[in-house]
């Protein structure tokens, strides 16, 4: 990059330096308090923390999977429907982002509780006899997290589909492809980048969740951010909190790097 091209990026780089790089380096410093790796040994050596890390990744993966399952068709429909419907779609998809996490979570409690709207409908309709356990467990956490993270999947997919030249789709159609084959052979491969972008964002954001799992998981679903928060606010063991954060950060970067490899433009032979 020439220096001339570099200058406009300076404010952003400064911002990144002061608000990201600097705190991260300080955090790493904290974690190596006294020049020892003891806190890392604890983070990676004790079953408790490893299990929570594993849980966290498992949840993040599942959330990503469900966001993809719901978000791809949604983003796809919004990109291909009329502007009016697209706007309606946008409002509904973005609504959770404009609502506070507590309001959202209580709304889910009203909907999904044992005596909630959803269960009452099912019971009244005679579909189930006893209320389904939708809340205060893993299911509740999934529903809550997928709901709030869905926009991060829908928007990149929407963008990717919109960027696609309509003539390409028309060409495929004209050359004899059915809607199904157009989807598999044209839309899907050409929107893979959007899918990966959305998946990476959703996955990374999932890793840091703690309010939603704490409230909708009935306390049983423990993610690493909950433990880090505990170490920061309750036990005041900052070096250990820093070590846990650093491990999480390293895992996250690893996942990101892996995703990058997959996002290389597909050179199908």
């Amino acid at each position: 990059m020439s220096m001339r091209g570099f200058w406009p990026a300076v404010p952003a780089l400064l911002l990144l330096f002061f608000f990201f790089l600097f705190p991260v380096v300080r955090m790493l410093g904290f974690s190596l308090e006294g020049g020892s790796f003891d806190w890392y040994a604890k983070a990676l050596g004790e079953g408790l923390y490893l299990r929570v890390f594993w849980n966290t990744f498992e949840i993040a993966l599942l959330v990503t999977f469900f966001c993809l399952l719901l978000g791809y068709p949604l983003g796809f429909l919004m990109a291909t429907t009329t502007p009016l419907w697209a706007t309606v779609g946008f409002i509904f998809v973005l609504l959770p982002l404009w609502t506070s996490v507590l309001v959202r979570t209580y709304a889910w409690m009203v909907l999904l509780g044992r005596n909630g709207v959803f269960n009452r409908l099912l019971i009244d309709a005679g579909i189930v006899e006893d209320p389904l356990p939708l809340l205060h467990n893993f299911t509740g956490v999934m529903i809550g997290m997928v709901h709030v993270l869905l926009p991060y999947m829908v928007l990149p997919v929407y963008g990717a589909v919109r960027r696609l030249d309509p003539a390409i789709v028309a060409a495929a159609e004209g050359l004899g492809a059915s809607s199904w084959r157009i989807f598999w052979r044209i839309y899907l491969p050409l929107t893979l980048n959007g899918i990966f972008a959305g998946a990476v964002i959703v996955f990374v954001l999932s890793l840091g969740f703690y309010i939603t799992p704490a409230l909708l998981g009935g306390g049983r679903v423990i993610m690493i951010a909950v433990l880090i928060e505990q170490q920061v606010r309750e036990t005041l063991n900052w070096p250990f909190a820093a070590a846990l954060s650093a491990v999480l950060l390293a895992f996250t970067f690893a996942v990101y790097a892996l995703a990058q490899r997959f996002t290389r433009p597909q050179e199908t032979a």
């Binding site: 004209g174 050359l175 050409l190």
Partner: peptide
Amino acid sequence: ARRDIGMVFQNYALFPHLTVERNVAFPLEM
């Protein structure tokens, strides 16, 4: 898709993710 009409578009509308061979094979595969 069922008209059996070959068409060349203004900007060619080639499938950017497929090789030349696969582009040309596309209508036959369909």
